[in-house]
Every structure is written in structure tokens, then in C-alpha cells.
Amino acid sequence: MKLIACYSNKGGVGKTAASVNLAYASALSGNRTLLCDLDPQGASGFYFRVKPSEKLKNTTFFEDTKKFTDSIRESDFHNLDLLPANISFRDFDIFLSRMKKSRSRLNKALKPVDGEYDIVLLDCPPNISLLSENVFKVADRIVVPVIPTTLSQRTLEQLYDFFKKQGYKSSKIFPFFSMVQQSKSLHLQIMEEIRAGNKQVMETWIPFSTHIERMGVHRAPALAYAEKEAAVAAYSQLWQEVQN
């Protein structure tokens, strides 16, 4: 079982869109895939029309393996299951801070599904928290969507600094450019700058696209309804890169 986290400490950068489409692409390439929605807003679940997990409240996520596995829902797509979030996930840090080995709890929580899935994708909330540190520790790869703007550039640098300071492996971080508008020279310039200083940046980038924005209308991964659109097809390509 490989654990891939889709993470950014900045909001609105296309994390959920990437998580949903990467999970879909993973399932399509034959992997038994679980998309684990860790964001209390539950957007991943919304895109898959899956209702919030009612039984997975408070500390049960970390402590009750039966409730954890019972909360997993089969999506409408072959090979793809989802663990939906609920609003109580916003208190994860409080629960974690009260627990022993608070930075390894996510690893323990995911143990019951080890062997059931080839890929577990974590859709993470946009903050640096105890939960994020669990993710940094347990994930095999961390894909980080970056909008090529100065602010995003700064956030990425902050992430690397945090990893360095806390002793996490920064080699796990794989940034990719998201919501790119080629008509903007600033986007192109920042992409060039970041690439020049970071060899881990993915080749594939995701253009800004209304087809992706319309995921909320279709309530399905963009790859399921607009796979031929270049911006959407980029997710498949990105998945190939992540997988390799």
C-alpha cells in the first residue's frame, strides 16, 4: 500500500481537485484506491456525492478501527473507494494532542486497510498542524499544488523550511503547478524560477480550466466527464509521473 498525500499549507490551490482526479486516474490504471478525505469541509466527498461519515466522530477516526473501516464508501467508479470527512475532523488536532505518540496516529489509523488497497490518497486540510505532521511522517510521497504566484512560492518555501526544521524528509515533496494561466507572464516567470531551484517539481502542470471548475456541477472527477480536454487530461499525465 502506497500512501500519497495531496497537501498545501495554502488554501484554494486545487488540492481537492487534484486529489479527486489523481484518485480517479489511479483507480483507472488498475490500482485499488482509497481516497481519504481529511479536510473537515468534506469537498472530496461532495464531488463523489458521498454523504459525510456520521459515525466517524471525535476520536473514533484514530481509535475505532471498525468504525473507521465501516465508514469507507464505494464510489460510483470501479476500484475507487472513499473515506468521507465530517465537520468534527476540524478538531483532529485537539484529539491528537491528547493522545500518546500523537505524530504516528494516522499511520495506526490506516493499518486496518493495509492490504485492501494499492494506493491511499490523502486529501489534506490547508494548515501546518499535528495532523499535517502525521501526514508528513507517514506519506510515501507528498504532492503539493502550487499556483505560480509569489505568495504560493513563499508558502512552498515555508513548507521546505518546516520540513528541514522538524527533520522530515523533504525528498518526499513533489510540487506541481496548478491553475496555470499561460497568458500571464508572471505565472511563466515564477514557474521558471521555482523549477530552476527545485528538481523535484513535476514536469506536468495543470492549466486553469472551467472544465475543472465545473466539477461542483457534475459532482464527479473531471476525468470522468471531460477526459479529452487538455487541462483535464493533464491529471492523468500527472498521475503517471506521481506513480513513477
Binding site: 463523489f48 456525492r49 458521498v50 454523504k51 460510483d76 459532482r219
Partner: peptide
């Protein structure tokens, strides 16, 4: 006639 019927909830989730 062969078909796959879907039982949908109020969110149109199968």
C-alpha cells in the same frame, strides 16, 4: 434486454 440498474440516494449517488 440486459441492463445494470442503479439504486440512487437523494444525492444521486449509487
Amino acid at each position: 434486454i440486459r441492463d445494470i440498474l442503479s439504486l440512487l440516494d437523494d444525492e444521486q449517488k449509487t
